[in-house]
Design a protein around this nucleic acid. Sequence first.
DNA 1: TTTGTAAACGGAGACCCCTCCGGTTATCGT
DNA 2: ACGATAACCGGAGGGGTCTCCGTTTACAAA
Lengths: 194, 194
Amino acid sequence: MLQVVSARRELPILGQAQPERSDAARNRQKIIEATTRLIAEHGTEQLSLDEVARAAGVGVGTVYRRFGDRSGLLLALIDEHERRFQEAFLSGPPPLGPGAADRDRLRAFLHALVDRIRGQEGLFLMLEKGVRYSGPYQVHHTHVATLVAGVRPGCDAHFLADGLLAPLNANLICRRGYSIERIKSGIDQLVDLL
Amino acid sequence: MLQVVSARRELPILGQAQPERSDAARNRQKIIEATTRLIAEHGTEQLSLDEVARAAGVGVGTVYRRFGDRSGLLLALIDEHERRFQEAFLSGPPPLGPGAADRDRLRAFLHALVDRIRGQEGLFLMLEKGVRYSGPYQVHHTHVATLVAGVRPGCDAHFLADGLLAPLNANLICRRGYSIERIKSGIDQLVDLL
DNA sequence: TTTGTAAACGGAGACCCCTCCGGTTATCGT
DNA sequence: ACGATAACCGGAGGGGTCTCCGTTTACAAA
């Protein structure tokens, strides 16, 4: 059985032997609260960590020591909801949790993940600064959608085209550790399903 | 038939009536060349636009007027290869170009896209600054891979899990204009294929 | 050639992320 | 209670992105 995993555990280089010192924990809390407040007031778009530090009444260095970087702070905010979410699909009631058929659990999980992302939309968008859906992507998308419609008439070719193109990003291809052969054969499996 | 599309066309707010002034075109070229040179020398990782401007012998304002922002400059570098790529799959020989069966063209296109991304790996990685594959993602991935293996034994469940999770990103869900119902029903179509 | 003007130029500077390090403090063994 | 010490604190500062706006320049019309 998988364990619920908190993003926070990742910060210390090699697992924390000692618990946090009391002033550190206090400051962590102050920073989280200040961030939540600032986002509520000014939106996620323009969130400056300098400002967070000022609002929390700590130095900017403290923010970075506690959370590593901007993403770390955002992940910490995401983390609280994440914990509940993980409990739901790891040990909650079916169809999300154990008990239902694999296919139903899979469907339920993916649906729940969509809702979860919508629930913290602003935070997730900040984490994905990347530039997709612009320029060449449009052409690729139209091309793939046309072919998908040819292969499998009646399906939602537009959405499936996005679905097929989504795994083809540099992070997955270059940084996830798959060999090129494996990626291409995985793609073939996907195409064969159609 | 689709037209080859260049990223550059997007910069002017509403299509360029006039062609670029000669000094502007000259500077665009100098900037592209300087960028290429700097990347060749110091890698894509640490590319500063201030430095680009200095190396090109123009002011930093010029860089931003020509390319909008950092991503715009990177897209411009990507664009030259992109044009050849688009010609290949829009009008080149089969199986990439027209003439082969849709399924084969689709497979060929996706394979070619993988190679293309590998070919300009550094540039594509810079465009996707986002933080995936960290924290909660690992848990989601393991969960989905387990379910996929249950639904379809013998497939590459690890890769397919990444493939299923890839479309579930905030940009696609929140910015692409799909309704939630459509996204979920599209996901159902994907799951049903398994 | 001259001249008007829209476009382009460039760099100072606002703002941001993150690091570094000298000073401070919580915690623990005595 | 009291050092010893490891962890924490804060903010100055380096380096980056991008904007703003006074100045310059290419181009076309006269």
